[in-house]
Nucleic acid binder design. Structure first.
Lengths: 411, 411
DNA sequence: CCGGTTAGTCGGTCGGATCAACGAATCGCG
DNA sequence: CGCGATTCGTTGATCCGACCGACTAACCGG
């Protein structure tokens, strides 16, 4: 019970921002004395800090604000993608403490080599935590794949050419040293799911309890937050929306069928619409980032062909998103990945299509927004997922007695 | 804390069936003494009963099983549909205490008249509760409509020709008498959503935490249970899957577009495939039940035309359901409404289509099953939703001291 | 009849939430 | 400047309720 009350107070501070003890008591319904005791314990654990003596304005004794103190714990998020790895460390306030990106041609390497690289990056993140005297509380790996979350196994990742790769076990085996010093859970999840979690935790729609996040890459991935919780599915295989067949007479798809959503709005489909085969944009030797930049440039200069292509992609987004919105009625749809880069050109036609196709009046009260995290959403989501452990049970963070300045904390 | 522990024990008994106090303690991690005290309180509240002295078989003193005792509380579920109203009272063990169906041509009546009839049926259900000395704990109305659950308003119900009907308020106004005696919450929700809840609570897939329920009627409705909770959406507008456009070149739909899912698998679409306009089955003067019976008869006698039609409907079910399964990765898809009647003829082609279209290996571990509740699922789900209040907080049921036999209970 | 084993209850203990009252800090006002 | 009013946070007393150990109850097999 103590635990759940500690969690209640910590969550409240995280969600609603800092406030006085009396304010917390009023909001949560707990007793003032109880809140005082809980806050004291959270301070001892380094999770919470006493802030400014509230600027006086009203009558009465001004309270001292209590605020989340990130500096004691860190969540680690790692993203494995087709051509890079990213690791990020976030503190409790979702501030970035460390971020590193490594180029890596994942599909051309055996999974073991990739796991070596992931382990290297992760231990660098852990060392950075140690250097800052921050307790690492968990690692979450985001992968564009069907992930069996419970087993910690990547079942199938066509873009990486992986099948049945035991990521959690592989990583744990490679990190025995750091893990012995800082025991913490390792998890794997689908990147689109984690991106949704990232937007929910710290994006432009932070705090929205019901949202759908669409990640635009070579394919399209979806993540759903419903009632404030990630919809993971029975096996963790949720969010596979790329092969929704919008038009049986459409363009051929890698899956063998025609007219899948991603043939219309995936990066390849967008490029096909925007440029002929002999156009420099279609040169596969260039990186995707560069080709994307070229497209944006052309759009900005008003190139007709490009604008038409983006309009069709936007409309395609609307057609597919309408299906999802009708199904789960989110409060917001967030466009991430490459959609975010080209957002201004996609939003108009997408919204028009939604207005026409969503059954509920006024698109069911659903907003369409661009991701503020962009390609970083998945790793942020992973780090936040790791931090959830602290919000669930603040008592996992040890008490550092009274000493505030402890350079080489032994706890 | 006491409350949450009471709820914990009651939920456990509901989900896992009756067992001894020691068994409950072992399962929940609570102390034996604590469980004894909690069970005693639940017995006082009439929610739980001491059963048979466990048939001895092993060594040691045999424990006395504790079981859910339904007989003290009742949840009321009311369904409003195109041509009938249904009310049902379920006790805590999901046993039917009362069930009544009234024919009513809803679209031809003003909503006020329909609400009068609903109120009449509901108060009959409440009187039945009184007669049995059962405490009614809530009313949930299931309606085939876009329902703003929070506001208790039907936003839009094309089949009923309703728009912005304040059902909760209307019903509360008409039930002031009974409600004064038994204060209880009234709620409205979408019928497909509640049907999913019904299957989850007491259907063939009872206890499955992640499932999708498809209701086949004139349209198609979906309900999603994810992580054991109903996915209601931000405004309660979830489950509108009937107008997923499977083929832009398909048959015309009432919504103005072509090739919507319900043109393929809705009852009208099925009948169109199975019979020409001059066929007796196509006679709109007959009730839907009768026409459905005729179709089933023909299928049973091996009529080629009918079997071909049902095969196409089954395949269409698979095409649409694949989209939903890829999106939310349920453990089971339950076919309800008219799909359940014709299930044997639909399942084969549906499963074949799913195997081809679901991305996750082995259909993501998703089973396809026929509803065991059929058309009753929505009202059962509503009654169960009302009973949730008791499982959430058993303390809402008053203590009836020691007296067991109280004909006219004043509590 | 007696040890062995498991079920349920009883009295004591203790963690921790609540309550009431008090000291602390600020404002408005005379 | 002093005083009441007001709100904040803490302190000591109280009490609820979960936990623990020990006991009795009820069955088994020999």
């Amino acid at each position: 019970m103590r635990r759940s009350n500690l969690a209640l107070v910590l969550r409240h501070l995280g969600a609603r921002g800092s406030r006085s003890r009396a304010g917390i008591a009023a909001d949560t319904g707990l007793n003032k004395a109880t809140v005082s005791s809980l806050v004291a314990e959270l301070v001892d654990r380094g999770l919470v800090r006493e802030g400014e003596p509230h600027r006086a304005g009203a009558v009465g004794r001004p309270g001292k604000d209590v605020a989340l103190d990130g500096r004691c714990v860190g969540g680690i998020g790692v993203e494995v993608n087709v051509d890079y790895l990213t690791a990020v460390v976030l503190d409790l306030t979702s501030t970035v403490l460390f971020e590193q990106r490594v180029a890596l041609d994942v599909p051309s390497l055996p999974p073991e080599d990739v796991l070596d690289a992931v382990a290297g990056l992760t231990s660098r993140a852990i060392r950075e935590c140690e250097r800052r005297d921050v307790l690492p509380v968990g690692v979450t790996v985001a992968i564009p794949a069907l992930v069996d979350v419970a087993a910690g196994v990547v079942a199938f990742a066509p873009n990486l050419r992986w099948r049945d790769v035991p990521v959690v076990r592989g990583l744990a085996d490679r990190l025995t040293g750091p893990l012995a010093e800082h025991p913490m859970p390792i998890r794997v999840a689908n990147d689109a799911n984690l991106a949704a979690l990232g937007e929910h935790a710290m994006g432009g729609v932070a705090g929205t309890a019901d949202l759908v996040h669409l990640t635009g890459g070579m394919g399209v991935g979806a993540g759903v937050i419903s009632g404030g919780r990630l919809l993971g599915g029975a096996e963790g295989f949720s969010g596979e929306v790329g092969h929704i067949q919008l038009d049986p007479a459409g363009h051929e798809c890698g899956c063998g069928r025609r007219g899948c959503w991603e043939t219309l709005v995936g990066m390849a489909g967008m490029l096909r619409l925007a440029a002929d085969a002999d156009d420099p944009v279609s040169d596969p030797a260039l990186g995707l980032d560069q080709r994307l930049d070229m497209i944006r440039c052309r759009a900005e200069t008003g190139d007709r062909r490009t604008l038409d292509a983006l309009e069709r992609v936007g409309a395609g987004l609307g057609v597919g998103a309408a299906i999802l919105i009708n199904f789960v009625n989110p409060r917001a749809v967030v466009l991430g990945g490459y959609f975010a880069c080209l957002g201004p050109y996609l939003l108009g036609p997408m919204r028009a299509e939604l207005r026409a196709r969503v059954i509920a009046p006024d698109i069911g009260g659903c907003r369409v927004e661009l991701s503020t995290l962009g390609f970083a959403a998945a790793s942020r989501g992973g780090a936040n997922a790791a931090l959830e452990a602290v919000f669930d049970d603040p008592a996992i963070v040890p008490i550092r007695s009274a000493a505030r300045v402890s350079a080489t904390g032994s706890g």
